[in-house]
């Protein structure tokens, strides 16, 4: 009986292994066919030499890469100082929005209006308005720096989105937990601090990873008000060389950062799903 069961077990494993190998081979073949067709067919198009020269010009790729890589450091720096400030300011807005005491209603109102406005207005308008408008009021140097006010614009906009993500996390904590904590004698603020937020922030981590990836790309919007980061530098090269290859270089550099970040976010999400199920 047991011997028979072990035999069955073995043949099932065998079968599964075969099936897996079979699907791997099919996937491999179909991918090769599609990629092969693209590689063979696209260059057959009549305009391919012109497109190749304009977008995938190796000589220009090599010539512009070092400068573009250097200007990418500015994107990284802007990202690095914006991200933590966004996280903090968004948390403030989210907590404002969750206030329940009638006396604190103005805070709540402010949070509602704030998120409505900054989620509804195009980022680029905020960048222009804050980046040119506020320094235009007559601030002396260095307080009129486009780096400073451009960053403020990004922080204001992104905080509105992230605050809403926080809020969804906060509201996902069941009200019975709050009531239980209150019945234990915790104050409203302690409930928020020790019961709600630790769970809520953990829950929205994957969603916030997506915001980080979006922010990495939107940092380039600061170039509209002066800073020469990778996107602007690519534009300068484009105009001087009359060739779009520098943008392809910029895209490759961006991908080198965003693809690992996206994979990391996916891992976080699936880990969280496993834990919940």
């Amino acid at each position: 009986m047991s011997e028979n069961g072990a035999g069955k077990q073995l043949s099932r494993l065998e079968y599964e292994r075969k099936a897996r190998r079979r699907s791997l081979i099919i996937a491999g073949l179909s991918t090769t066919a599609v990629v092969g067709a693209l590689v063979v067919l696209v260059p057959l198009a009549p305009g391919w030499p012109a497109v190749k020269n304009s977008f995938f010009n190796w000589e220009i790729f090599v010539r512009t890469s070092p400068t573009l890589l250097r200007t990418f450091l500015l994107d990284v720096a802007i990202f690095a100082w914006c991200a933590p400030l966004i996280a903090i300011w968004a948390l403030v807005i989210a907590v404002f929005r969750d206030t329940r005491s009638p006396a604190l209603f103005p805070f709540r109102l402010f949070a509602i209006i704030y998120t409505d406005i900054f989620r509804g207005v195009p980022v680029i308008l905020v960048v222009y308005l804050v980046g040119f408008g506020i320094p235009g009021l007559g601030l002396p140097r260095p307080w009129n720096s486009p780096y400073l006010w451009g960053s403020v614009a990004l922080i204001l906009t992104y905080a509105a989105y992230v605050a809403e993500i926080y809020r969804s996390g906060i509201e996902s904590i069941h009200v019975s937990q709050r009531n239980a904590a209150l019945s234990l004698g915790l104050s409203q603020s302690d409930v928020m601090r020790y019961v709600v937020l630790p769970q809520a922030l953990r829950r929205v981590l994957p969603a916030n990873m997506n915001m980080l990836i979006a922010l990495q790309k939107d940092v380039a919007l600061l170039s509209f008000i002066g800073p020469v980061e990778i996107f602007r530098q690519a534009g300068v090269f484009k105009s001087l060389l009359a060739n779009f290859t520098p943008y392809v270089v910029a895209a490759v550099i961006f991908l080198a950062v965003t693809v690992p970040a996206t994979r990391f976010a996916d891992t976080l999400i699936s880990r969280q799903n496993r834990r919940r199920s």
């Binding site: 235009g136 007559g138 486009p146 008000i225 002066g226």
Partner: peptide, 18 residues
């Protein structure tokens, strides 16, 4: 240099004393 999309933005930056 700080660089802008067009001449209008350059002028705006100049007005903002940047």
């Amino acid at each position: 240099a700080l660089l802008y999309n067009d001449g209008a933005d350059v002028v705006e930056a100049m007005k903002a004393n940047q």
